[in-house]
């Protein structure tokens, strides 16, 4: 069902997806690592399948993917490794699936993180988006299930959203392969540095807390100048996250 060319459009030179080669599980010598994160049941696995040509089983229930699934694709002569992370509502607690997702984004340092959200339930999904944006700078918002949003008469202004979040926003309906070419291109641009993200940072916290975060952040940066997510580490330290305290002790963050 997922052959390389389903229609005349997919084979056309004008279609950006024609530069796409689905590599399946062949993920050696990749140029970029891309993570797929998002709430449960937003269609991450469907996006994953559309990009890699694999047929990771998809299902309509939260928690379907509990392990990391990996696959590959090549686009514009660059090879990408795509990692499908378990869907989570937040990165702040400690169940194993959340930890897999959190640790990969934090320690695996993907070149781009595609955050898949359900367009018809954007507000609820944004909680996780904001947490991910605390960890990584390089992200693309995949506004998936646009077909469902349309059916529910929900309109989303992608430009405002992109501006507020500080990352590119691509509307898709992965089930119907809509928006995948645009997504590929945007991921490519972020990975290659053509698009520089300025991600949103959590603002609505009391001043006292903000000050504490800032103070700790500076100290972390002094100790580990190369760490890209000092603010997140500060947040987690203040929350007493054992895994992060451990990582500070072992210096896991220094390795580039």
């Amino acid at each position: 069902m997922q052959t390389l060319t389903n229609s005349a459009c997919e084979g056309c030179d004008l279609n950006q997806a024609s530069n796409l080669k689905k590599l399946g599980v062949n993920i050696n010598n990749n140029d970029f690592v891309v993570a797929l994160a998002g709430n449960p049941n937003t269609g991450k696995s469907t996006v994953f399948n559309a990009l890699t040509g694999l047929r990771q089983h998809t299902g309509n229930w939260p928690g379907k993917t509990v392990t990391r699934a990996e696959g590959g694709y090549s686009y514009n002569d660059k090879k990408y490794k795509l990692v499908d992370l378990p869907g989570t509502y937040s990165l702040l607690s400690t169940s194993q699936d959340e930890e897999i997702a959190r640790n990969f984004i934090l320690f695996g340092k993907p070149d781009v993180t595609i955050i898949v959200v359900d367009a018809s339930r954007l507000e609820r999904n944004l909680n996780l988006v904001l947490q991910i944006l605390e960890i990584t700078d390089k992200a693309v918002l995949c506004l998936n299930l646009m077909d469902e949003a349309k059916r529910l008469d929900i309109e989303i202004n992608e430009r405002t959203l992109a501006k507020d979040l500080g990352i590119p926003v691509v509307p898709t309906s992965a089930r119907f392969k809509e928006g995948i070419p645009e997504l590929l291109n945007t991921v490519h641009q972020v990975a290659s540095g053509e698009i520089i993200c300025k991600p949103h940072r959590i603002k609505s916290v009391p001043k006292k807390i903000n000050k504490a975060i800032e103070k700790l952040r500076l100290e972390i940066e002094k100790a580990f100048p190369n760490v890209p997510n000092s603010r997140w580490i500060a947040l987690r330290l203040l929350d007493g996250d054992q895994r992060i305290i451990e990582a500070i002790k072992t210096g896991e963050f220094i390795t580039e």
Binding site: L122, E123, Q131, T160, L161, D164, H200, I202, K203, V205
Partner: peptide, 18 residues
């Protein structure tokens, strides 16, 4: 912190979702 995240999310959603 959680409250802060929710407040920000609500703000952003309000700006873009119609």
């Amino acid at each position: 912190l959680t409250e802060g995240i929710y407040a920000d999310a609500a703000n952003i959603a309000q700006n873009s979702v119609h």
